[in-house]
């Protein structure tokens, strides 16, 4: 495509109103043409003034920060932190270093399974010792941290004792349909870990959250939970928000 033809398309290019082939040709031309580059820059600046003044949802920044903090694990183009691990495994498999990542998945599977067993046992234990009293005690402890995970459909509150014992203290989240469960994830020291599989209608559940927690996130998953999630968080809590 000749320079004059490119010039005629620069306005449409600045508005993303050219097709893929034309876009490629124009961008190849722009690499070596200062004049066209300047014109496109001016058009883009003009277009950037056509901006609707819309309040961004409050959860947007939390979602961005959550993705950023899990960036070490997330390598997917689309910032779905859990899917990132799956993508990483696929890529690594191609380069012949899959063993380590497979071991990690196995470890995670074991962790999720162990958590389900532990929670099941703890639930039975709590049935006998008035669970609300444990939560009240934790809430009354000034050294405990209250983590309120907020999302579009409601919020869920956990109280975390310095020992790592944690309790689900309150939830306004709607019960899930059959076949689905809430799953809690924590970012601890830059690692995403499954903290608990909470069931479709979370109640006073005890769990363990050890280490320095930067982020808690809740996703909706198939019953039984997953090792790696590709879901957007339904609710998020940031430690330093």
């Amino acid at each position: 495509m000749e320079h004059d033809e490119i010039i005629g398309l620069l306005g449409a290019y600045a508005l993303d109103a050219v097709d893929r082939r034309e876009r490629g040709l124009i961008e190849a031309h722009l690499d070596g043409c200062t004049m066209c580059c300047t014109e496109v820059g001016q058009f883009l600046e003009v277009a950037s003034e056509f901006v609707p003044a819309t309040q961004a949802p409050r959860s947007l920044w939390a979602r961005i920060l959550f993705s950023v903090r899990s960036h070490g694990v997330a390598v997917a183009t689309r910032p779905r932190p859990w899917l990132g691990l799956v993508a990483a495994i696929t890529v690594v498999a191609l380069s012949g270093v899959v063993v380590i990542q497979q071991r990690r998945v196995v470890d995670l599977e074991a962790t999720v399974a162990r958590q389900m067993i532990e929670i099941d046992g703890q639930n039975r234990e709590l049935d006998q010792v008035a669970p609300d009293r444990l939560v009240s005690a934790a809430l009354g402890d000034p050294t405990s941290v209250q983590a309120v995970l907020s999302g579009e459909t409601g919020s869920i509150t956990f109280v975390i004792e310095p020992s790592g014992n944690a309790f689900l203290a309150d939830s306004t989240l709607p019960p899930l349909p059959e076949g689905l469960t809430y799953q809690l994830w924590a970012v601890v020291d830059g690692e995403i870990i499954s903290a608990a599989v909470l069931g479709p209608d979370p109640r006073l559940t005890p769990l363990r959250i050890e280490g320095s927690v930067a982020v808690l996130a809740l996703t909706v998953e198939p019953v039984g939970g997953v090792v790696v999630s590709d879901q957007e968080p339904a609710a998020v809590w940031l430690a330093d928000a």
Binding site: A53, T54, P57, I64, P79
Partner: peptide, 26 residues
């Protein structure tokens, strides 16, 4: 707000606009 607002205006879908805004900043 401008990033989200532009995405929402073009896409006309709040959830997808949020995804796009998130993508841009990440």
């Amino acid at each position: 707000s401008q990033v989200f607002g532009l995405a929402k205006r073009v896409i006309r879908d709040e959830e997808m606009a949020r995804d796009i805004a998130q993508d841009v900043f990440v």
